[in-house]
Design a protein around this nucleic acid. Structure first.
Lengths: 213, 213
DNA sequence: CACCTTACTGACTGCAGAGTTAGTAAGGCG
DNA sequence: CGCCTTACTAACTCTGCAGTCAGTAAGGTG
């Protein structure tokens, strides 16, 4: 009998962290932080539990890494997209809301949203990162643009922050719906359709009359 | 030294379950199911841990009881409110959305919403109860009314289910926001203001032009 | 006032699962 | 081809907490 063609394991220092984070995301998303087992994460990543500790000092640090990994790419995206848009609000909205829908459509992000909500009391720092770097930035920027549009008479009177909430909530709710109710057999909302129809609904209610007509 | 005036404990079979559920709600809401300790719940309820087992066979059953307790009263409320409204959609909406906001405003419900989202994979049956008895009922009923209003020409063309989502999402998001970001110092959304402003925004985009004018 | 039922407690058991450690082999380097 | 570094594993320890059980006293009943 010759020695097996595939050794029991290989040294792959570069690839490990990403693989572990991906496996951890799955398990954390399914079970939540406390109920997730490191043995399961390790098995799913194809390494031993002890190997996790070569890359992440504790379970909490692994969890933090998972969330950070999910924030980073979207942070850049949101900021770039909204940063300095100078056209009419309705053009921005018709571009931005479907874009948000597209970003939100990839499942990892939805799973992380669910985790951040569920673990916000156990990991306030994560809720803070999520809030400060993503959500508050988005809300503030959008409501700033709305305020500017109000000054130009494009948009009706009203709290810009609430208008911003009206604009993006259905997208987020669709994602939460998918994470919560679709697994038990409820029909999903199509994010693209929600975005397309809802922008028009929201704009119809936000834009000043003469422009809406 | 006389015997202490207050005995170490009293027999209060009737009052216990409700007290335990209230204490459990607090602890579960703060920690999530897995991280919640029965010792903490017991202490908060003013009984020993063993006493919990006189009323609830397992930790899971206690959790189920907490969620069920929160669903029951609202179930009746939602159904009664929407069941057979026959006026114009905008009248219903101006009545319904603020009512939902008022219901959602009492903190226990928000905490339970967060728990149902966070534990939906660990307790699919709870997600199912929540979905079937409350959320799906509400969405179906509302979108039914919207479809009827479309037939009468009150409301523009579009998927009634998505219109329903557009109508109620900001209320739910405000609640989730309160549970997630307010504890870390973010400013809250005032549910009443959100409801008042958002109904008009949503109606403005939903109602057919001649009626909106 | 004596007795009995039972609501309740304190001190325990068992185990799952986070974190550790001593050892094994992959694979680069001379 | 032999040696050394180190990525990786198997098998352990130990703690925290769900669930148990023998005993205690509240308080109703005759």
């Amino acid at each position: 009998m010759s020695v097996s063609a595939s050794p029991r394991w290989r040294r792959r220092k570069q690839a490990r962290p990403a693989e572990i984070i991906a496996a951890a995301l799955e398990v954390f998303a399914e079970r939540g932080f406390a109920a997730a087992r490191l043995d399961d994460i390790a098995a799913s990543a194809g390494v031993s539990k002890a190997a996790l500790y070569l890359y992440f000092p504790t379970k909490e640090d692994l969890f933090r890494a998972v969330v950070a990994e999910a924030v980073a790419p979207n942070l850049a995206m949101v900021q770039a997209a909204v940063a300095e848009f100078d056209g009419r609000l309705e053009d921005l909205a018709r571009f931005l809301v479907p874009m948000l829908a597209k970003v939100a459509a990839n499942p990892p992000l939805g799973a992380v949203v669910k985790m951040v909500i569920g673990e916000s009391r156990n990991f306030p720092e994560l809720a803070r990162v999520w809030h400060d770097d993503l959500v508050a930035t988005a809300i503030t920027t959008i409501s700033g643009l709305i305020a500017k549009a109000q000054a130009k008479g494009e948009v009706r009177a009203g709290d810009p922050r609430i208008f911003a909430l009206s604009l993006i909530s259905p997208i987020l709710m669709s994602v939460i719906w998918r994470e919560t109710f679709v697994p038990i057999g409820a029909p999903a909302f199509d994010l693209g359709e929600v975005a397309a129809q809802h922008v028009e609904t929201a704009l119809g209610g936000m834009l000043a009359r003469e422009m809406a007509a």
